[in-house]
Nucleic acid binder design. Structure first.
Lengths: 134, 134
DNA sequence: CTAAACTATAGAGTTAACTTTAAGGCAAGT
DNA sequence: ACTTGCCTTAAAGTTAACTCTATAGTTTAG
């Protein structure tokens, strides 16, 4: 498939896909050149881009992704090193997930407060006094 | 307290604090000027900066934070508008938290795979065949 | 009293991750 | 053949969020 199709299938723009290639996140397993020099992408490219999106969405930088994906490709690191990376990443993401839980708590409190402010200002006031955080 | 103390108490740099001020995230409730023109911060400033950090950590931009905090300060928006914003934010954060859960799943799988690759390559192979995602 | 350490400002520089532009070649419909 | 739209590259531009530099005034420890 050509770049535009891949873009549509992944929700990225063609610009972004070329940019990722320049950054070393795509290689010959993901596309080949045709005679006219157009890139011809394989289904592997879709998987790769979706994986990148997923990890990027939880705060992985492109350079970090490049490193781990490169390892997945070649075998530059020892298995032990990769296991360490994964473990580290897991606790990082767990920490992050907990932060999200905390913020949800704060937001739910804010919501409760605003709603009671609308219906019963006195109750809102007592809510404010209960809460010491924030 | 002066800027350096505030920086230490919040884990930010003095540069960043002044930058936040320039962006409109701090006002006279958070600091006053002394005769020598030095900023003198109140404890409110600590709370404010920690709140900013917390929300920023879950992907809120500074301009978004400025808006909601400004509302918290003055009363520019109707209560209904704020409730809407909070609700929207809640579902956004819930979506994000679920993404984190998913990634944790993927990472745990990667870990399991790598460990079995070390101990029992055949088992690793069968793990690979089980998993269709990624 | 002086040097070090802090404070101030305006404005320039940095980094990541795009995003667009310019200038051209190729392809598909009419 | 012509127009429209897709493809190519290199390079410049953008945005957010800092981060630092230069220059100068203030405070404090020895």
């Amino acid at each position: 498939m050509k770049i535009k199709e891949l873009a549509e299938k992944t929700g990225l723009t063609a610009y972004t896909i070329r940019f990722y290639e320049k950054e070393g996140l795509l290689d010959n397993r993901h596309f080949q050149r045709e005679e006219n020099n157009y890139r011809n992408y394989s289904d592997e490219a879709i998987k790769r881009l979706k994986l990148i999106k997923k990890f990027q969405g939880v705060g992985c930088s492109l350079s970090e992704l490049k490193e781990i994906l490169q390892d997945r490709d070649e075998n530059t690191r020892t298995n032990q090193q990769v296991i360490e990376w994964i473990n580290q990443k897991i606790s990082e993401i767990e920490r992050k997930r907990d932060e999200y839980e905390q913020i949800l708590d704060t937001l739910n409190w804010m919501l409760e407060y605003r709603i009671s402010l609308m219906n019963d200002p006195e109750q809102a006031d007592s809510l404010l006094k209960q809460r010491h955080s924030d």
